[in-house]
Design a protein around this nucleic acid. Structure first.
Lengths: 169, 169
DNA sequence: AGGATAGTTCAATATTTTTTGAACAAAGAT
DNA sequence: ATCTTTGTTCAAAAAATATTGAACTATCCT
């Protein structure tokens, strides 16, 4: 069942390690866990799709980590299941999405938008609280600040599509 | 020396708590520690500049946290020392920078650019490693991937100034 | 049905990051 | 010169986050 010629490859070679390290750094900037970077990095530099088990073996991470990592990467649209490995193959193989547009889109959709939304909600509530302040001068100051927050949110909303457009090339 | 009427204000009022909470969420998205959000948030909603000691008392954080937090916020250009509180005042007071342009600029300069730079360096080294691969077909595949990484970095570099421009309004 | 292989879930553990607090440094006041 | 107030530093403690691994579910194969 096992193909020794492939199964024996365990450790990452130096080049693979370099690539993984680039992505580990990359995802850290985005606030995602290291395992995400490792998984995506290895997929990115592999010529053929890898199974969950390949990732576990080669990266020496737990099955749990690999499973959760793949789930998140799928939700971000950063990996997809490799299409039709013909006949009776049960295991699923994964390949990376390598178009920046798609990666950025997924990140914005999954990680940025939700926070922007919940921020807007909080700020709306804040605006209401502001109204109840008795002292007029103070109230005007607060309104001014809340107004500014709302402006920031609007700018944020405007900038995302533009970001996507520029990075989709 | 102490002005009881002011010094007695300890707890944050509900509105202040709401604002602080918005900023705590906000900085979390950016990958900055909660204390940064608390400090900036309280400054943002305060009508007059606050001293390090005010922050410690009102936010119930340690002097160390306040000091380090203020240092980071200064480096980001997100707070500045309040100008000339006249005569013999030794303590320094801080006020927030409230222009989005400045905040975004500081964040990009301090948090994004350095990572972009070190990423580029790593990728340059990677390109060299790629050259040493014997098998031509494999080498060509790797070159293709590294090329793509370089493209991503270029896109990143191009997008930052545009971001700043759009948010500077 | 029973066995084997693939993959998921989640409580416990490990790691990383942040915060604290006490010692220290700087500088004005007496 | 010494005391006092203000602020900084950094090792240790606490909190937050990620990873593990074992129990579980699903599905295919005989």
């Amino acid at each position: 069942m096992s193909d020794p010629a492939e199964a024996d490859i365990q450790e990452l070679d130096p080049l693979e390690r370099q690539v993984v390290s680039v992505f580990v750094d990359g995802v850290k900037v985005l606030g995602l866990p290291r395992s995400i970077g490792e998984i995506y990095g290895l997929l990115f530099i592999s010529r053929s799709p890898l199974s969950l088990d390949d990732l576990v073996r080669r990266l020496k991470i737990s099955k749990g980590s690999a499973s959760q990592g793949l789930r998140m990467l799928k939700s971000l649209g950063a990996v997809r299941e490799a299409p039709g490995n013909g006949g009776g193959e049960r295991r699923t193989y994964y390949e990376p999405a390598v178009e920046l547009k798609r990666l950025v889109g997924g990140f914005i959709r999954e990680q940025i938008r939700p926070h922007l939304e919940s921020g807007k909600t909080k700020i709306r509530r804040l605006a209401e609280t502001t109204e109840t302040v008795e002292d007029e001068e103070h109230r005007e100051f607060l309104k001014d600040r809340v107004e500014r927050l709302e402006q920031w949110m609007r700018s944020g909303g405007r900038v995302l599509p533009i970001l996507q457009k520029i990075l989709g090339q």
